[in-house]
C-alpha cells in the first residue's frame, strides 16, 4: 500500500469522497430534524440511506487500506481513536434514524428525542471530520521501524 502511490492515493480519494456523501446525507437529515425546511417530509429522506451505507462500507474498506499503509502512525495517535469512536456513534445514530424515521407520518411533528439525537449527530460528524484532518498533523510516529 505504502509503496504504490496509486493504491495509496486511490484509497485516500475514495475515503474522502465516501466521507463527503456519508456526512452530507447525515447533515441534511439532521438539519431537517432540527428545524430547517420544515415542510420537507422526513420519511422519504430515508431513501438516501442505501447510498449512505454503500459509502459507509467504502469508508471502512478504504480506511482499512490506509491503516495498513501506516499502522503505527494511526494506532499510536489518540486522535485516531477519537475519529473511530465518533464515526461509530454517527453510524449507530444513522441506523436508528433509518428505522425510526422511515415510517413517520408526513404531518407528525419532530419528536424531541429525534431532535436531540440530530444535534448529537451534527456534533459527532463534525468531530469525525476534524479528527480526520488533525490525524495528519498530530502523529508522533510515522513508521514502526522507529522502535527498532
Amino acid at each position: 500500500m505504502r509503496e504504490s502511490g496509486a493504491a495509496f492515493f486511490t484509497s485516500l480519494t475514495l475515503h474522502s469522497l465516501a466521507m463527503a456523501f456519508v456526512v452530507g446525507i447525515n447533515l441534511a437529515i439532521a438539519f431537517r430534524l432540527v428545524g430547517f425546511a420544515p415542510k420537507l417530509p422526513i420519511a422519504p429522506l430515508t431513501r438516501f440511506y442505501p447510498l449512505h451505507w454503500y459509502c459507509a462500507v467504502l469508508i471502512l474498506v478504504s480506511g482499512l487500506a490506509l491503516l495498513l499503509a501506516y499502522p503505527a502512525k494511526a494506532l499510536t495517535n489518540e486522535v485516531f481513536y477519537l475519529k473511530l469512536t465518533a464515526l461509530s456513534i454517527g453510524l449507530l445514530i444513522s441506523k436508528r434514524f433509518q428505522y425510526t424515521l422511515s415510517n413517520l407520518p408526513e404531518d407528525e411533528p419532530v419528536q424531541n428525542d429525534h431532535k436531540q439525537l440530530a444535534y448529537l449527530s451534527l456534533v459527532v460528524w463534525a468531530t469525525t471530520i476534524c479528527a480526520g484532518r488533525f490525524l495528519a498533523y498530530t502523529h508522533n510516529v510515522l513508521l514502526a521501524s522507529r522502535f527498532y
Binding site: I25, A28, A37, R47, I129
Partner: peptide, 30 residues
C-alpha cells in the same frame, strides 16, 4: 471539508434526486 460535506449533503442530494434517486422526496422542498 465540513463546508464541502454541507454542499454535497444539499446540492449533491438535489442533483441525485433529479437523477432519479429517492423519487419520493419532493424536489421543491428538498
Amino acid at each position: 471539508f465540513l463546508g464541502l460535506c454541507m454542499l454535497i449533503g444539499t446540492v449533491g442530494l438535489f442533483d441525485l434526486r433529479m437523477l432519479g434517486v429517492a423519487k419520493q422526496v419532493s424536489l421543491t422542498e428538498l
